[in-house]
Amino acid sequence: MTLELEEYGCTIDELMVVTFSRAMDNDTKAFNGAVSFIPVCGYLLARRTHAPGLVWAASSIAIDADPPSIPESTLSDALWGGASMLATSAHDFWSYASGARYNTFAFRGAQIDAWGNVNNTVIGPYDAPKVRLPGGGGMADLGSMIPKIYLWNTVHNPRVFVEKLDFRSGIGWGDGGDHRERLGLPGGPQLCITNLCVFDFHPESHRMRVASLHPGVTVEEVQEATGFEVLVPDGEIPTTDRPTEEELRILREEVDPTGARLREF
């Protein structure tokens, strides 16, 4: 894998950021939570390239922030430089989120299932956990409220991508099919970007499906690293698009000169 990714002239973190960035557009109105370096880099890169109208609230607070670099915490006020408004209260934030004025959010769970539901609560039973995780935080809220959900994970293995979550902290496509629609929830997960591949979701069953493989990765390797059966599209599976020189330059020099994104690896 490494050899062929080298041919792209970039590293896996850069490929993930660029792939995330390209999924954003001028209609994206996003915000971020904790430990969200890949999405934060992605929003900033998209805004500097193809989506200058993208809205991003740093730490869900600092609207239109344009920080000179990315600090060690994506909830830190060091991320808020250049903002045009600090959305100061829960009242502002939840008004924008509940009404889907903010339309894009990205999750990274300790466990992710085939429908893009996520767990950040416990490994093992809730009442007697093997590992007590931080908790879902806003996952349960934003999974239900936000129409365009993106998932990412830098550690694609069967312990993360599981058949059954130990706890559903946040809803993706729920039980699949029209579950979200039946609950009256807008949209749902769009993509899941990992260190091996990009998944989209089958339009009817809403199960994860391989959309593209990163250079050098085979579909067998993805299946082996995934605890549920992955869907594959008909025909040849494309390779994840190559980042341009310009995207890589902007990411490395302007968006994240200190390499904060590597904290996720």
């Binding site: 809730y126 935080g137 999974g143 239900s144 559903r168 809803i171």
Partner: peptide
């Protein structure tokens, strides 16, 4: 979740039996 807690606190603050939200629908909470 964050919003479920905020809504519970608002129900208390506003002396209401409950405050509704779409947060948490479809989750194990």
């Amino acid at each position: 979740s964050e919003d479920l807690l905020i809504c519970r606190l608002r129900a208390e603050a506003w002396n209401l039996p409950f405050v509704p939200t779409k947060a948490g629908l479809g989750t194990d909470l």
